[in-house]
Simulated scan of single mutants.
Amino acid sequence: MAYVTDNRNFLALLTERLTETESLLDVGSGPCLILDDLPYAHIVAMDVHRPYLLNRATTSGHILPLNADARLMEQFFIPKTFSAVSFMDSIEHFGKHDALKMLRDAELIAKKQVIVFTPRGFFPQANVDHYGLNGEEFQTHRSGWEPEEFEELGFDVVVMKGQHDRRNPVFVRSFGEDHPPVDALLAIKNV
């Protein structure tokens, strides 16, 4: 059963659940906004939209950009390459079929953990690029996720109550100013 919390500090909730922080493959990194805040010694930031990586928020030497389609990640990495594989605000950008395949691939590539952070349910988002880098096609949401779906796949799930709300302009555009906040899911599978 999913753990429910009012704690909205995603990074704190994530960090306390990490088991090994040697290396991370972050799938769908965008411009790498939070990667410097993660405790991993080595990070590969994978994104299909090259302008995100060219304009990334960090040029830290321990973060290596990789411009590639995540649906092909099993072709780039052998099993047990990284301590963890993460999908932070990215799994919802793929249809369910592709996303489930990528989660299976991630379980092979990860030595310790597969990490997912995503809105709960379907969060409609289309024709928007938060970063103004013409990535609208890649920012479109194509799937929604519920805690039970991750639990059936063997993930431990934290439901972060009200994580998405009117402070986010895309939330207002998608749901309206008066819509109740939408929860987020932090799902972690130890492999």
Score class of each variant (00 low, 15 high):
Y3E: 15
T5E: 00
N9P: 10
L11K: 14
A12W: 01
E16Y: 02
T21F: 02
E22M: 01
L25T: 11
L25A: 14
D26P: 06
V27S: 13
G28R: 08
G28Y: 00
C32A: 14
I34W: 07
L35F: 05
D36T: 15
D37V: 01
L38Y: 04
L38A: 03
H42F: 12
A45Y: 05
A45N: 08
A45E: 08
D47Q: 13
V48N: 07
P51K: 02
Y52K: 02
L53T: 07
L53G: 06
N55F: 02
N55T: 11
A57R: 12
T58V: 11
T58E: 07
S60M: 01
L64R: 13
N67E: 12
N67R: 06
A68K: 13
A70K: 12
R71P: 08
L72F: 07
Q75A: 14
Q75H: 15
F76Q: 11
F76I: 02
F77I: 04
F77T: 03
T81F: 11
T81Q: 10
F82R: 07
V85H: 00
F87C: 07
M88E: 04
D89C: 02
D89P: 01
D89A: 10
I91C: 11
I91Q: 04
E92W: 05
F94N: 13
D98H: 12
A99S: 14
K101A: 15
L103H: 04
L103A: 11
R104G: 11
R104V: 10
D105A: 15
A106M: 03
E107T: 10
I109M: 06
Q113Y: 03
I115Q: 00
I115C: 03
V116T: 12
P119Q: 06
R120G: 04
P124N: 07
P124Q: 13
A126P: 01
D129G: 12
H130V: 04
Y131S: 10
Y131R: 14
Y131V: 11
Y131F: 13
G132S: 13
L133D: 13
N134M: 06
E136Q: 13
E136A: 04
E137I: 02
E137L: 03
Q139I: 01
S143N: 15
S143D: 10
S143E: 08
G144R: 03
E146D: 03
E149A: 03
E149Q: 10
E151D: 06
E151W: 04
E151Q: 15
E152L: 10
F155V: 13
F155A: 09
D156Q: 13
K161I: 00
G162A: 10
Q163G: 02
Q163K: 12
D165S: 14
R166A: 10
P169K: 06
F171E: 11
F171W: 02
G176I: 00
E177D: 12
D178A: 05
P180C: 03
P181V: 12
V182F: 10
V182H: 05
A184V: 01
A184N: 00
A187H: 10
